[in-house]
Each structure stands twice: as structure tokens, then as C-alpha cells.
């Protein structure tokens, strides 16, 4: 069905949107809204760990100090949430997954991201590589707050934000694609904002 016109509806393009190009169906916000399915988790850094498990069961483990000792990057990225808001030019600091996966021997096609608290989300392994994904621990120069997924969250800004798992604790690499938390509840398996892949079948 193609766009039933609402007479008298003008919208706000050009007011805050300006010349900015947004993915279809998105609008700009200056806030940083919070979206989580449950209470905010508070994960202490002294017991924090991040574990990558390959399809053969090989484990690679980092504690907080080891993560801090790795070379970090400061990406500035646009965020697109499936609930329609987009926030542009957000600045982060974190460790690229390219760094973390450098010594990991895998031929996996898919990744399942796990969070403290039990949240999961799935994505193709390729989407973690080539400067597309980080384990982020600073936002706007400050330590990432628990509301926004601190102490560390996955940041994969080329996909809808639910893929950027808060309170990340590990990634399991697999041969088969398995749906994560929202993906099991009808949200899209891949979630490309530019193709408006919000829900299954989009």
C-alpha cells in the first residue's frame, strides 16, 4: 500500500531535518532515549569479563583491565533505533572487534551476542569486521552509564540499535543463524535501517 495522503499534514522536514539524509521512517532527536526490555543492570568492572567462543568451543577472554589496555578508537557514528528516532554524530570510544577477533581462528558465518541479564542478539559474523563494530565504553568522553549499556556495550551502528547490545559479556560464533531476543519476537533478523528492515518479512 503506497502512502495514503493526509490532507493538511505537512510534517517537519527541513525544520530539524535540514539537508540531513535519514533512513526511511526515521526522525531526528537530540536526546538519547533509552530502550530496554527490563530494569537497568549495574555490572561492576572488577568482575566484568568479555568472552568470545568460537564454533569449535575455543574461548578468548578479556577482563576489564585487559580491555582497557587494548588500542581503542573514537568513532563518530549515527544511531538509528527501530522505534523511529535517529541521533546523528554521536561520539564513542571503544575497542574495534577487528582487534578482538584478530587472534581468533574461526570460519563461522554468524555471531550471537550475549549480555549480562540474558539479552541476546544475532548478526552475521562479517558485520563485526572491517571497522563496523566496537566494544564501546565511553560516550561523549564520559564513562558509558548503565542506562546506555555501561560499562561496555556492543556498537554496530550500521544496524538498528537493538543489535548494539547493552551490558555485553560475550559473543558466540556459530555456523547457523539463531534468532536473538527481539529477533524471536518478530523483529528483523538483520535490521538494516536503510532498507527499513524493522520486522520479519520487511
Amino acid at each position: 500500500m503506497g502512502g495514503i495522503v493526509s490532507p493538511g499534514f505537512r510534517g517537519r522536514r527541513g525544520v530539524e531535518g535540514g539537508e540531513v539524509r535519514l533512513p526511511p521512517g526515521q526522525y531526528l532527536t537530540e536526546d538519547f532515549p533509552v530502550l530496554t526490555a527490563g530494569p537497568t543492570l549495574r555490572v561492576p568492572t572488577d568482575t566484568w569479563e568479555f568472552v568470545i567462543v568460537t564454533e569449535t568451543g575455543e574461548k578468548h577472554r578479556w577482563d576489564w583491565q585487559q580491555l582497557m589496555a587494548l588500542p581503542s578508537e573514537r568513532p563518530t557514528v549515527d544511531l538509528h533505533c527501530v522505534t523511529k528516532w535517529s541521533k546523528l554524530h554521536t561520539s564513542w570510544q571503544g575497542v574495534s572487534l577487528d582487534v578482538l577477533l584478530e587472534g581468533v581462528d574461526t570460519a563461522a558465518d554468524y555471531a550471537m551476542v550475549h549480555s549480562y541479564g540474558g539479552y541476546t542478539t544475532n548478526l552475521p559474523y562479517e558485520d563485526l569486521l572491517h571497522g563496523q563494530a566496537w566494544i564501546a565504553y565511553k560516550f561523549d568522553g564520559e564513562d558509558l552509564t548503565p542506562e546506555h549499556g555501561g560499562p561496555a556495550r556492543l556498537l554496530v551502528p550500521h544496524l538498528y540499535l537493538w543489535k548494539s547490545a547493552k551490558w555485553v559479556r560475550g559473543i558466540t560464533l556459530t555456523d547457523e543463524d539463531t534468532p536473538g531476543f527481539w529477533e524471536s519476537a518478530g523483529y528483523h533478523d538483520y535490521g538494516d535501517p536503510w532498507r527499513e528492515q524493522r520486522y520479519q518479512g520487511d
Binding site: 536526546d31 532515549p33 533509552v34 530496554t36 527490563g38 530494569p39 522505534t83 540474558g118 542506562e147
Partner: peptide
């Protein structure tokens, strides 16, 4: 709203409710 949900969810956890039984929906901007 986000601040409300954050506060209430924290209260529920502090009172001893199981986090897995606390479902939240936060309003955005």
C-alpha cells in the same frame, strides 16, 4: 518516561522482585 521507568524498576529490584519478572517500556524523546 525513561526517568520514571528507571526509578521504578530500581525500586522493584531493591524490594526483591526478580528482574526477569519486571518488563519495561520506556518512552523516548
Amino acid at each position: 518516561p525513561t526517568g520514571f521507568v528507571e526509578a521504578v524498576a530500581d525500586i522493584l529490584i531493591a524490594l526483591g522482585h526478580d528482574a526477569r519478572r519486571v518488563k519495561t517500556e520506556r518512552f523516548g524523546p
